[in-house]
Amino acid sequence: MLQTVLDADPVGDATSFRDTHLTAYRFMLLARMLDDKCAGLYRAGKIHGGVFIGRGQEALSVSIGLSLKKGDVFAPLIRDTAGRLAFGEPVVDALRTYLGSVLGPMRGRDGNVHRGRPKEGYLPMVSHLGAMVSVVNGTLFARRMKGVTGMVGATCIGDGATSTGAVHEAINQAAVEKLPLVLIVADNQYAYSTPTSRQFACRDLADRAAGYGVESHSVDGTDLSACLKVVGDAVARARAGRGPQMVVATLLRLCGHGEHDDASYIDPKLKASPVGRDCLKVAEEHLLRQKWADATALAALRGEIVREIEEAVAQVQREPTPDPFTEDWRAISTGHLNEGQEK
């Protein structure tokens, strides 16, 4: 599944710089359009449960996805459609999970953003914020015990999760064990409806890293070039053995918490400020300005992506959904240790 992971050096020569931007832009656009498609299916009543999209966070998310290699570990959060795709998740995995296809990785047992393929280093999030960080630590810890070197593990949280005990414990744990962890903090100004003024009182979340003995990096999350550079550097430093890295990106969530949420609480002043820029538009303008792409090429790309998504939706909608009568209803892998099973 990791066929799309690029072994790209985002700070390399001019050609690879341009190619990385084009690749990143493609994943960002694919993520935006896939998210929008899921939002549309939700509004049409085709999706059970919620839909959670990453509008406004694609530049940051794609940067982590592209900075990772095959063999790395990635535990994305709810706004990481772009990062998931860039890490190698096929479009159908998202759709199969949202639409409950039994052919998807979660087989209708879990839905929406709770998807992954643990055996491929792609960890499925639980809803409890901050809980994935120590799990990533565990994968890195185990690999080190097995003598595997040169890998990194990355995970994403928001400003809200930084308030949890789980995140504190896990950063400290990674620091004590000097694990190659990259913690991406998307400071998107709101945790559901709670503004950062009610979430933390420190000047900058990046300042917290020093207290853990961890290196930190700040970045404008609306600027793809900056995200590629800063996240890429952080991943490289972790890979080189400099211990855990924390990246704090400043941006604005350009949607509700989920598609059920109209986000009416978002301060219009923030929307009008530089933090409220749409990273996809910024990236597109950059491509045009640099003449790395023209309007025709971008229109063609959009057409291609629409076809890809529509074909995938049509395919997944024909796939079987779970059958409660053939479901084995076993939460324990050791058959006879399930209650009510034949011995």
Binding site: P118, S134, N137, G138, A142, A166, E169, A170, N172, V176
Partner: peptide, 17 residues
């Protein structure tokens, strides 16, 4: 460290591996 949450989290990650 005195981090029961992170201890179990680490164990789960290691078990996945």
């Amino acid at each position: 460290p005195i981090s029961e949450d992170a201890m179990i989290g680490l164990a789960v990650g290691a078990a996945i591996e």
